[in-house]
């Protein structure tokens, strides 16, 4: 099995790499790459994302052919792909961080700022919060409802169709914290920083 972590020169992905290597040991071949040939020949892809929606989309677009290859991988070939944090947010049609930016359009919806209820809630939403699992998802196998995951974000993905939501978390509102649509998975929280529970999720994705 070959898994590629997409390195598109946006933000810090060393924690993602470390967590996948820790879980995979020698069983899985893990590539950290932006090479579209390598991505094309992978069985699974992880799309991390840090920084703003706009900067991540721009960074993806900066690598010639990358977005087309990701589309091919996730939409046409329907191979498993996991987006983390802004990696998940980019699934949307549009994001409103910094300025209105077109997303990948894989899961219909928008990414907008979390409602902090006039300063009543601090932003970013940083720290450990419980996830309410609302849909059976393969990546939650042997992860209990109300497990803690580590979050750090100010923007949230609001999908058009509620059915894609696999878990939410309670902050100022019910924040969508993971989605699943066929072969496409995404987590708003950081499994790579969510201790043993997070590593379980990494393991579940590897074993899909």
């Amino acid at each position: 099995m070959k898994l590629s972590i997409v390195d598109y020169k946006s933000g810090n992905i060393s924690s993602v790499i470390n967590s996948f290597k820790e879980v995979a040991k020698d069983k899985v071949n893990i590539e950290v790459t932006s090479d579209i040939k390598k991505i094309s020949s992978s069985d699974k892809v992880v799309l991390p994302g840090q920084g703003s929606f706009k900067s991540c989309i721009e960074a993806l677009n900066n690598i010639s052919g990358l977005v087309d290859e990701l589309n091919e991988f996730a939409i046409n070939k329907k191979k498993p792909l996991l987006g983390i944090c802004v990696g998940l947010q980019m699934f949307a049609d549009v994001g409103y961080e910094e300025t209105e930016t077109k997303g990948l359009g894989w899961i219909s919806g928008k990414v907008s700022k979390i409602d902090n209820q006039n300063g009543k809630y601090k932003l970013p939403h940083i720290g450990w919060n419980e996830i309410n699992i609302v849909k059976d998802s393969k990546i939650f196998k042997s992860i209990e409802n109300n497990s803690h995951m580590y979050f750090v974000h100010s923007y949230e993905f609001i999908p058009t169709d509620d059915k894609v939501i696999s878990s939410t978390t309670d902050y100022s509102t019910k924040v969508v914290c993971s989605v699943e649509k066929e072969n496409i998975f995404g987590t708003q929280f950081h499994p790579e920083k969510s201790d043993k529970t997070g590593l379980k999720l990494v393991n579940n994705f590897i074993n899909l």
């Binding site: 933000g11 810090n12 840090q50 920084g51 703003s52 900067s55 970013p124 940083i126 750090v152 974000h153 100010s154």
Partner: peptide, 8 residues
């Protein structure tokens, strides 16, 4: 914060 994101 622009380059790496405020979160870090």
């Amino acid at each position: 914060s622009k380059k790496f994101g405020s979160q870090c």
